[in-house]
Every structure is written in structure tokens, then in C-alpha cells.
């Protein structure tokens, strides 16, 4: 069963009642909300996402709701909550949807320490994955969005989730939050991309969410083997370059980009070492998405033989 099997009314009732149970890759969430505007957007953007089995245990119980008491009437706000705690200052009610999306990321980054969490996007084709470790502003989400609308499968936009048992990447194909100019860039690059409304003047500027292709969501339980590490950097007007990166530098870049390298200690060292050993590493500078997508397609085709 998927979210789209529920009517908008049924979804709103679940959100306001026991919570909407959703499966995002390896995690089950239960989301509660008493905001009508949130229910409407959730119905639209979460439409292809699966609902877990009724008996499944939820990893996170999250909430995006109007605050209680007098504040509710003074200012129209939305508070993100997890397990009854409110870790962030209230958001303006218009930003409830991005606030929940960021909140879910925060839950994963701060609690899922049974997995190695890299700050990276990841896409897959023919069983081999490209991992894109990057810092905010490097253009990883834009590139990732372009690739998943050009024949690659989305594993994740925000987390490279590495399973400690075998080093495989676990998909978590959540919505991709594009920021500022990237929204228009993707609208032009792939007009068919499903992009939600733009949220103006959020804490991260203007944000709009891309819904991944249904195929990526449908294959969310299918892990992939990392094959390439590509460190992207978008630079306005820069000529395209794709250069091999020394493995020692790749190791340091991956390790310092991980959310929980220190938490996992030796496990993290071994996982990152193995990933760098088995992957070709590149530094990629781009200003044009077509150049980047073509070059990565060629990389994949060369590996296919």
C-alpha cells in the first residue's frame, strides 16, 4: 500500500490521529500533524511512498504541529517534535513542510548510529553506485536531481548510508530539497520533474522539493555497491573538469564528511577504507548540467565494458 491509496481526507485523519506511518528506505516513520496545509502537501508529494506493514515498529515518531496554548493564537507557527521533544525553535506555519523534512534528516543524522552516515548524495545504474560527498553549496542536490531524471536511480540526496555488515549503500530516496537558483535550473533541465511549491525566505533561502521518480521509490529496499566517489563542485561559468583524485585525499574527504565517523570508531575507519579502496575517486567541477551528466554516463558505460 502507498500513500496514494489513501484519500486526502484519510491521510489528514491519520496525521491528526494515530499518525501516518511511512517507509523511507531502511526507516519507518510515524508522522503526526494537525495542520491542514501540511496534509495537503504530504498527500501530493508523498504519494508514491510505501506504508509499512501495520505491525512494523516506527524508528522515529515525529510531529509538525501548531504550538499549544496562547502562542497558537498570537503567531501562526509550526513546531517540529520528536518523541515529545521540540529540538528547534518554531517555524512560521508556511514553512511547516520543509521544517518536517529537515527534522527527519536531523533524526537520521543524530540517531541512526547502527549505520555509517556520509553527508553525500548517491545514485545507481546497473548495480554500481556513484557517491557524491559534498559540503552545502557544492551543487550535489542539483547534480543528483539531474542524474535521476537521466536514467540513474536515486539512492539518496542527503545521506550515503553504508551498511556495516557488507559496505553496501542502502537507499533512502526521500524528497530532494532544491535551493534558490537550483530550482529554476532543474525546471529548465527537465521540465517533467515533479517539483513541489517554492517556500520563500526559509532558514535556507527559497526551497522546493523534487519528488524522485517512482522507480527509485519502488526499489528503495535494493542496496547498491559503491563504485565511484565523485566530489562535485558547481562553479558559475567554470569549464568542466573531471580529474582523478588521490585515494588518501578521497579518504580524508569522505571521513570528514561523515556524520558519525567518530561515533562508529574502528567500524567507520574500516568502512571508509574499503569504500575508497574499491572506488575510483574523482573531483568534478561543473557549471553546465549536460556536461556533468554526459561525463558520468560515459564513466558508467566504460565500466559496463
Amino acid at each position: 500500500m502507498i500513500v496514494g491509496d489513501l484519500s486526502r481526507r484519510e491521510l489528514a485523519d491519520r496525521l491528526a490521529g494515530e499518525g501516518l506511518a511511512l517507509q523511507f528506505g531502511p526507516f519507518n516513520l510515524r508522522i503526526r500533524s494537525n495542520l491542514g496545509s501540511f496534509a495537503s502537501l504530504a498527500h501530493q508529494l508523498y504519494e508514491p511512498y510505501p506504508l509499512p506493514e501495520p505491525a512494523a515498529i516506527s524508528d522515529f515518531h515525529v510531529d509538525i504541529s501548531a504550538p499549544r496554548g496562547l502562542r497558537r493564537w498570537l503567531r501562526r507557527q509550526a513546531c517540529f517534535g520528536i518523541d515529545g521533544q521540540l529540538p528547534f525553535a518554531p517555524y512560521t506555519i508556511e514553512h511547516a513542510f520543509p521544517a518536517l523534512e529537515w527534522g527527519i534528516n536531523w533524526c537520521v543524522a543524530t540517531r541512526a548510529h547502527h549505520l555509517l552516515l556520509l553527508h553525500s548524495a548517491a545514485v545507481e545504474r546497473n548495480g554500481r553506485a556513484i557517491v557524491f560527498p559534498a559540503s552545502p553549496g557544492d551543487g550535489k542536490s542539483t547534480l543528483c536531481t539531474a542524474l535521476i531524471h537521466s536514467g540513474w536511480r536515486l539512492l539518496s540526496d542527503e545521506f550515503g548510508i553504508v551498511r556495516p555488515e557488507d559496505g553496501m549503500l542502502l537507499p533512502i530516496p526521500r524528497l530532494i530539497p532544491l535551493k534558490n537558483q537550483s530550482i529554476e535550473v532543474i525546471r529548465k533541465f527537465r521540465p517533467e520533474a515533479i517539483i513541489g511549491p517554492s517556500f520563500l525566505e526559509t532558514r535556507k533561502g527559497t526551497v522546493a522539493h523534487v519528488r524522485p521518480p517512482v522507480e527509485s521509490i519502488r526499489r528503495a529496499q535494493e542496496p547498491a555497491r559503491p563504485r565511484w566517489l565523485v566530489f562535485p563542485r558547481w562553479v558559475a561559468g567554470a569549464p568542466f573538469t573531471l580529474e582523478a583524485m588521490p585515494k588518501s585525499q578521497a579518504f580524508l574527504s569522505v571521513a570528514t564528511n561523515a556524520f558519525n565517523y567518530e561515533v562508529l570508531d574502528e567500524i567507520a575507519f574500516r568502512l571508509v577504507t574499503e569504500m575508497v579502496r574499491s572506488c575510483d575517486a574523482y573531483s568534478l567541477v561543473y557549471s553546465d548540467l549536460d556536461d556533468a551528466v554526459n561525463a558520468l554516463d560515459k564513466l558508467s558505460q566504460a565500466s559496463d565494458g
Partner: peptide, 22 residues
């Protein structure tokens, strides 16, 4: 200590301190 050599650079993990050195 756990060693990994790449390009004449050594990444060394020190379990007792949970530290990675270059």
C-alpha cells in the same frame, strides 16, 4: 594500529584513542 597506505600517505587508525592520523 591499523594502517592504510595510499600515494605515500599513510592513514593510521589508533583504536585505543579512537583516532585517525595522517
Amino acid at each position: 594500529l591499523i594502517w592504510q597506505e595510499w600515494d605515500d600517505i599513510y592513514i593510521v587508525y589508533q583504536p585505543a584513542a579512537a583516532a585517525t592520523h595522517v
